[in-house]
Nucleic acid binder design. Structure first.
Lengths: 245, 245
DNA sequence: TTGCAGATGATAGTATTACTATCAATGATA
DNA sequence: TATCATTGATAGTAATACTATCATCTGCAA
């Protein structure tokens, strides 16, 4: 039962395809470890080069700059995640179950990880997940969003949101906010996980070990509650307090 | 009817209180304009100094570094926002109306702006609001969150969330996710506004002018829908699909 | 075997940034 | 008038984010 998830990336994301060479793969794998370790701002191509016994200039042959590398990693994650969504919802008919699975996938729960068994050459999805939580917003919160967007750099994220929005519409065909609902639940999953860990007073789930249910489980329940309460709500049941017109 | 909102800031946020001098106030006011203009990453103390006819070194006498200045601005905004919440919900008894007001305040809608009338020396809250949308997460998504948090730098945000959570509990005393609900709705308000403007396909509200209701109004309706559907939902009506135990 | 191409190594260099240090000028205060 | 705090003015440093150049190595095709 050997298979690999083939992720074909947008060519605008790199100068030379890092998956096409040993060095390129090391750059990607090790940058994930390094960023997960010290954070994106503190990561430099020099440190990365030292870590993988190459030179700064060689890394620049693969990635135009630091930011593009980040965007590449994030894009890879979204494509991987969309694949997981497809894979784990394919056999389901009930859109409600599909949505429930998606929430679990978003928290990286209960996913049999093919990549995890591929040995030293595998991408550490779990480390990448923690990068996405901490750094993903830096990929689009820039002065040059519009230009980056024009180059389709955020397409994987949009595709994922689009797919989730589609399943939302399967569940509730007349739901008028499918896309916003999808992007909101994804973002919420991530920064609530961040808050849980670093600013726990902004959440209702601590990070204490040995408490059941764990923070992660409570976060999952919260996300379920948010998502399904909105999708089940009668629309326009709740008029604005003052209807100015 | 002359009054000023006195905002007393945490002393850890600055080296010398910028509100205590003319230069300090110019640094704060003009940094807002500059960051709103070119973005936080592109802003440098040199550019800021040139703009206000002072020297880089003088700015460093007020703020330890660029990041602290950002944290200061964001903190100021949250304190200002909490004040607005207090002010505009004080006279209300119905917690539902209070929450509705809060959503409007979050989008900076329908707030009679005292600061706007204070002339050249006033903080441009509207510009600051756009900075908060684009840059606020950079204030806490750092390698040194924990240390910054220990210095209470994020207290204004926590206080605001705490206050909103309190009102949520007025509305629904048994709601188990008040704090997460509060932080989620605030974050959602902001990045949905961002997506609406820069990555509109992630939302259901365009930015086209001359369409009624406008994107902003639809965003407000979306937030209302999200918030009240979750607060009105019967809890545990929605058990997980598989209840593993 | 030669020769050539593509990838990498090795070294150097540049502009900018983020910050620090120093001292002189200024202006208010005691 | 002395002094004290603030700012101006200038200089400098270490690190960063790149770019340029050329040598070396490794297949591989003729």
């Amino acid at each position: 039962m050997e298979y690999t998830v083939q992720v074909r990336m947008n060519e605008k994301l790199f100068l030379r395809d890092p998956e096409s060479s040993e060095l390129g793969r090391r750059i990607v794998r090790q940058s994930i470890m390094l960023i997960a370790d010290i954070g994106f701002e503190e990561m430099t191509f020099r440190k990365l080069a030292d870590r993988i016994n190459t030179k700064e200039a060689s890394i620049y042959r693969y990635f135009e700059n630091k930011h593009r590398l980040l965007v590449y990693l994030i894009a890879w994650y979204w494509q991987w995640l969309e694949y997981q969504v497809i894979f784990h919802t394919n056999n389901l008919t009930d859109p409600r179950e599909k949505l429930d699975r998606i929430l679990k996938i978003l928290l990286l729960k209960n996913i049999p990880q093919p990549s995890f068994s591929l040995g030293a050459d595998a991408i550490d999805v779990s480390a990448l997940h923690s990068i996405v939580i901490r750094e993903a917003s830096k990929a689009y919160l820039t002065h040059h969003v519009t230009e980056d967007n024009r180059q389709q750099l955020f397409k994987p994220y949009k595709d994922l949101c689009g797919r989730v929005a589609g399943i939302i519409l399967e569940y509730r065909p007349d739901y008028p906010y499918a896309r916003s609902r999808a992007s909101s639940i994804i973002e919420t999953a991530h920064y609530q996980a961040y808050f849980m860990q670093y600013l726990p007073s902004l959440t209702d789930f601590g990070v204490q070990r040995d408490v059941l249910p764990s923070g992660e489980d409570r976060l999952l329940e919260f996300l379920r509650h948010l998502l399904f309460s909105s999708l089940n709500a009668p629309l326009h049941e709740l008029p604005p307090v003052h209807t100015k017109r």
